[in-house]
Design a binder for these strands. Structure first.
Length: 349
DNA sequence: AGCCTTTGACCAGCG
DNA sequence: TCGCTGGTCAAAGGC
């Protein structure tokens, strides 16, 4: 029915964005002259601080800043460490694009009000996203302080939140449930199998072609939905190192998602394996992303979670670079600051 | 056996 | 018409 040409106008979910204060160019964060890469919290600090401001701003102020300014989008990091921006283009196609560090333009990290911060942090998905910190405390632990505040904020903003999230529930499902799939591939955890399974979006895909893209290092793979008579196709572009750089969808599914955990349904479901009971980071992260995508940023909790997501993003940046003792010390200081701010906030409550 | 990926060939659109 | 390019087909082989 909704063939691609005629196109299933999958409309992009309009989601509010949060804005952060003017920031120095991201590039400058990585070039302090020492050739050393900054840690996540260092980056957070630099990210939020004013250029002319030499004093450290409390974390609560950072949060306040994040809440105040519109139009800024936090980077979204995929499981393979590539930075993705998943969006829809004209004609009902949605796409995921790589990000430049200097332009953190990506899908928002949002958390549905019913998902408690602690639940989020305790989830394996979040664990996967935020691996153990190299200096002892996991970021999960360090951020527990912040999420405690998030829980408070959540309860305080529950009314506001529930009134604003209304449109997200069902109407956007068809589009948003696939929204973040580009990010779910984790080449590290599934080196051999997942290398050509671009995304676990709940549907089953069969690859029917691959072409090198002229003039660049990318190759493009073509997938069809394996469901009978389903017209949906997707194109997945990857760089030579296997990272997904873009996903393009065509058409709309004319069927429900296959049940992921159905055993022995006779489903020709290659991808179903990846949603097996022992859900890895991939599946859980996918669920998390789906939740994220389905709910607009509308509360302090959302903003706080945006910060958490930013830290995760910075985590990955850091993991890609050499971390020095000096930077780690800085991070510990920042962590302590977060902790203090958390306690302060609790007192204020 | 059935489904998958791979990959070269083929086809259509475009300049 | 020709060459280029993107998209698809289908045979072969693997799991």
């Amino acid at each position: 029915m909704a063939e691609q040409g005629t196109s299933s106008k999958l409309s992009a979910p309009t989601r509010p964005t949060i804005a952060l204060p003017p920031t120095p160019a991201m590039d400058s964060l990585f070039s302090d002259g020492s050739g050393l890469s900054p840690g996540p919290m260092t980056l957070v600090s630099a990210f939020f601080s004013n250029q002319d401001s030499t004093e450290n701003r409390p974390f609560s102020q950072l949060l306040a800043g994040a809440m105040a300014s519109p139009g800024y989008r936090l980077p979204y990091s995929s499981m393979d460490g590539s930075l993705m921006d998943v969006c829809f283009n004209d004609g009902g196609e949605k796409r995921s694009e790589p990000l430049n560090f200097s332009v953190p333009n990506s899908a928002l990290f949002t958390v549905p009000p019913r998902l408690s911060p602690s639940g989020l942090l305790n989830s394996p998905a979040f664990y996967c996203l935020s691996p153990q910190s190299p200096f002892g405390i996991s970021h999960q632990q360090a951020l527990a302080q912040v999420t405690a505040q998030a829980a408070i904020a959540q309860s305080l903003n529950h009314e506001e939140t529930s009134s604003q999230m209304a449109p997200s529930a069902s109407g956007l499902q068809s589009s948003t449930m696939e929204y973040a799939e580009a990010s779910q591939f984790d080449g590290k955890n599934q080196p051999s199998v997942a290398v050509d399974k671009p995304a676990e979006d709940g549907y089953n895909w069969r690859k029917y072609g691959q072409k090198p893209i002229k003039g660049c290092e990318y190759s493009r793979s073509y997938y069809k939905c394996t469901h009978l008579k389903c017209p949906v196709k997707k194109k997945v572009e990857r760089s030579t190192d296997g990272l997904i750089t873009e996903i393009l969808y065509k058409g709309a599914h004319n069927h429900e998602k296959p049940q992921p955990n159905k055993q022995g349904t006779g489903s020709s479901d290659g991808n179903a394996n990846s949603q097996a009971p022992e859900l890895g980071c991939q599946g859980l992260t996918g669920n998390l992303n789906k939740l994220n995508a389905a709910v607009p940023v509308c509360s302090n909790l959302g903003k706080i979670m945006n910060l958490l997501k930013l830290q995760n993003y910075l985590d990955q940046v850091r993991m890609r670079n050499t971390v020095t003792k000096r930077v780690e010390t800085k991070e510990i200081i920042m962590m302590n600051r977060i902790r203090k701010e958390g306690m302060l906030l609790r007192k204020l409550r």
